[in-house]
C-alpha cells in the first residue's frame, strides 16, 4: 500500500484538490458559459432554449452594459491608481528603523482584515449627508457639503475612497517588503557619486521596485474589478445606475430579474475583462522585461 502511494504520489497527492476544483470551479464556469447561450429566465416560466449569441448581442446593444463596463474601469483605475501612489509613499516613509514601526505596520493591517460589509455600513454612516462625519468635516473646513453616495458625480469617488482606505496598506506592505529585498550596491554607488536623495529615488529605487509594484497593481486590480460587498451594501449601484459595476449588474440580472441567461453573459464579459487585463499585464511585463 505504502509502496503504491509512493510510486503514484504524483497523482494521488493532488487528486483531492483537483477533484474539488473540477466540481466547485470547472463545473460552474462551464455551466455559466452554457447558460450564457440560453434564454433561461424565471420570468419565462423556466423553459430553457439554446439561443446562440443572442444574449451577447443584447448585451452589446444595452447602454446599461456599457455604463457598467465604464464604471468598473473608472472605479478600478481611480482606486488602484491612488492606492499605488499612496502605498509607495507610505512604504518609502516607513522604510527605516524607528521606534513604533511595528505599531505602524499593525495599524496598516487592520483595514485589510476588517470585514468589508461592516466597513461598508460604517462608511455609509460617515457619508450620510445630514448626520454624517464627512459633511461635518467639510462644513467645519468651510467647504461645500456634498451628497456623497447620492450624488452622481461623487458616488464612485466616495466608494473608491473606501477601497483606498481598505487596500492602500496592501500595496504599502508589499512595496515595503520589496524595499527590504533590494540589493545594496546600487545605493552605495549612488552615494559615492554624490546623488541627491531625490535622484536616488528617481533613478535607482523606483526602477528597481517596478516589478514589485506591477505585481501589486495586478493583484489589486483583479480584486477591484470584482468589488461587490462594499458597493452592494452602500449603494446597490445607485443613484440611478451611477455606481453600477459589471459585478453588480450581473447580480441584478441574475438575482434581481432572475434572467440567468443574460446574467451569465454579463459574467463571461467580466471574466474576459479580468483575464484579459491580467494577461495583458503579464505580456507587457515580459516584452518590456520589467
Amino acid at each position: 500500500m505504502n509502496r503504491f502511494i509512493e510510486r503514484n504520489i504524483v497523482w494521488i497527492f493532488p487528486l483531492p484538490a483537483a477533484l474539488f476544483i473540477l466540481l466547485m470551479m470547472a463545473f460552474p464556469v462551464l455551466y455559466t458559459f452554457w447558460v450564457s447561450f440560453t434564454d433561461w429566465s424565471v420570468a419565462s416560466g423556466g423553459n430553457v432554449h439554446f439561443i446562440g449569441l443572442k444574449n451577447y448581442y443584447d448585451l452589446l446593444n444595452n447602454p446599461r452594459f456599457f455604463n457598467a463596463v465604464k464604471m468598473t474601469f473608472y472605479f478600478t483605475i481611480l482606486a488602484v491608481g491612488v492606492e499605488t501612489v499612496l502605498g509607495v509613499i507610505i512604504a518609502l516613509i516607513l522604510n527605516r528603523e524607528f521606534w513604533g514601526k511595528g505599531i505602524a505596520k499593525t495599524i496598516l493591517l487592520l483595514p485589510m482584515v476588517a470585514t468589508p460589509v461592516a466597513i461598508g455600513l460604517a462608511w455609509t454612516l460617515f457619508y450620510e449627508p445630514t448626520i454624517g462625519l464627512a459633511n461635518y468635516t467639510l462644513r467645519s473646513l468651510g467647504l461645500q457639503a456634498s451628497s456623497w453616495l447620492a450624488s452622481r458625480d461623487m458616488v464612485v469617488p466616495a466608494l473608491a475612497i473606501v477601497d483606498i482606505w481598505e487596500w492602500t496598506p496592501m500595496i504599502a506592505l508589499i512595496v515595503l517588503a520589496g524595499l527590504a529585498s533590494l540589493p545594496v550596491e546600487p545605493f552605495e554607488a549612488a552615494k559615492v557619486d554624490g546623488a541627491s536623495a531625490f535622484q536616488t529615488l528617481r533613478y535607482i529605487t523606483l526602477p528597481l521596485l517596478y516589478p514589485t509594484i506591477l505585481v501589486a497593481v495586478v493583484l489589486r486590480s483583479i480584486d477591484a474589478f470584482k468589488t461587490f460587498d462594499i458597493i452592494y451594501t452602500m449603494t446597490a449601484g445607485g443613484p440611478g445606475f451611477a455606481s453600477e459595476t459589471l459585478n453588480i449588474y450581473a447580480y441584478s440580472l441574475g438575482f434581481g430579474y432572475f434572467n440567468f441567461g443574460a446574467a451569465s453573459s454579463a459574467l463571461v464579459a467580466l471574466l474576459a475583462i479580468v483575464l484579459g487585463s491580467s494577461l495583458l499585464t503579464l505580456w507587457v511585463r515580459k516584452t518590456w522585461e520589467i
Binding site: 466547485m24 470551479m25 460552474p28 447558460v35 459585478n247 479580468v274
Partner: peptide, 16 residues
C-alpha cells in the same frame, strides 16, 4: 487551474 479560482467573479458560481 487552482489560481484561476482567484480570478473568477464569485457570482458566476452561485447558481450552479
Amino acid at each position: 487551474f487552482i489560481l484561476l479560482a482567484r480570478l473568477m467573479p464569485g457570482i458566476s458560481y452561485l447558481i450552479p
